[in-house]
């Protein structure tokens, strides 16, 4: 890439639902971000290149965006194994972005054939044999789907030539250093251990009964809002842990407990510390948290 040329951006789909592509199309600054790149191929946006040319593996590629999970053999497009194409571009690229949980860890579609399907560099939390070869250029952006602003941030950092601080799974720390719980509109209820009385209420925390995985799921959904306006937990839906290597878990709308104690603790919090704090917080009945916030004329 010459000093002046824009980096070539190539978006490649493997086993996917297209959800990441559509999520990114909802970025309000989409075309400003893309203006920093030469968009070489995209599954939805026109680029002047055909899929046949892309599959031939001959297009330029500085930034490779991967969407969907991978299998060694059996996913062919136009007679070509998609993994082979991905490897060709991965070899050329300076940055590889695994966009979404499927490309990063394997995701939902992995469950069809757990031994054959994985993410590009991770198989759930384990490194795949490909990891070593691509680790130095890998950026993981899990999420089902990817948050448009998260990808926008990474692309702009690349365009700006900045170093992105990454964690051990190559996730940007600025996005995944916190949990989905951070910034949740129900935080007060979590602090005082007041569970919601059921679905469809703005009051109460979803961690105790409704299966919310927010306190132990990495991601900034409640700091950088979805569609610039909301999030699952704000809308009363439990966080489903969609950025995590083991997504999806099972019985997603119920909190798994042992003798009433949540099976999974908030991220990094020792169980004894959690139970002590919980026992104390629960001992107080705080009137404000037992009441409706708004009483419409009933």
């Amino acid at each position: 890439m010459s000093a002046k040329a824009k980096p070539a951006l190539l978006w490649l789909q493997s086993i996917t639902c297209n959800g990441n592509s559509h999520s990114f199309l909802n970025h309000p600054d989409l075309f400003s971000i893309l203006s920093h790149f030469e968009l070489v191929y995209h599954p939805i946006l026109e680029t002047g290149q055909t899929i046949e040319k892309m599959l031939a593996g001959t297009l330029p590629c500085d930034v490779l965006v991967l969407e969907g999970s991978f299998r060694q053999k059996g996913l062919r497009k136009n007679g070509v194994e998609v993994l082979e194409v991905a490897l060709q571009y991965a070899h050329k690229a300076e940055h590889i972005i695994t966009a979404g949980t499927c490309a990063t860890f394997g995701g939902i579609f992995k469950q069809k054939a757990p031994d054959a399907i994985s993410g590009f560099c991770f198989d759930e939390a384990e490194q795949t044999p490909r990891y070593r070869q691509y680790a130095d250029k890998l950026i993981s952006l899990p999420g089902c789907p990817i948050h448009p602003k998260w990808l926008g941030y990474v692309l702009m950092m690349i365009a700006d030539g900045r170093q992105i601080p990454l964690d051990e799974m190559h996730r940007p720390q600025e996005l995944y250093g916190i949990t989905v719980h951070t910034g949740c509109s129900r935080n007060e209820y979590f602090e005082w251990k007041v569970d919601t009385k059921g679905f469809g209420l703005k009051e109460g925390c979803l961690f105790y009964e409704q299966g919310c995985q927010g306190p132990y799921t990495r991601g900034s959904c409640n700091r950088i809002l979805w569609n610039d306006i909301s999030s699952k937990t704000i809308a009363g839906t439990p966080c489903l842990g969609c950025t995590e290597p083991d997504f999806p878990r099972t019985t997603l709308f119920e909190t798994k407990t042992r003798m009433g104690i949540p099976e999974t603790m908030p991220l990094g919090v020792p169980r004894r510390a959690y139970l002590t704090a919980t026992g104390i917080a629960k001992s107080f009945k705080i009137k404000r948290f037992e009441e409706r916030i708004i009483t419409y004329d009933r």
């Binding site: 004894r272 104390i280 001992s283 009945k285």
Partner: peptide, 12 residues
């Protein structure tokens, strides 16, 4: 000593 505050070590 509301609720379990004063016995929280034991309960925990």
């Amino acid at each position: 000593c509301e609720g379990m505050i004063c016995v929280s070590e034991f309960i925990t």
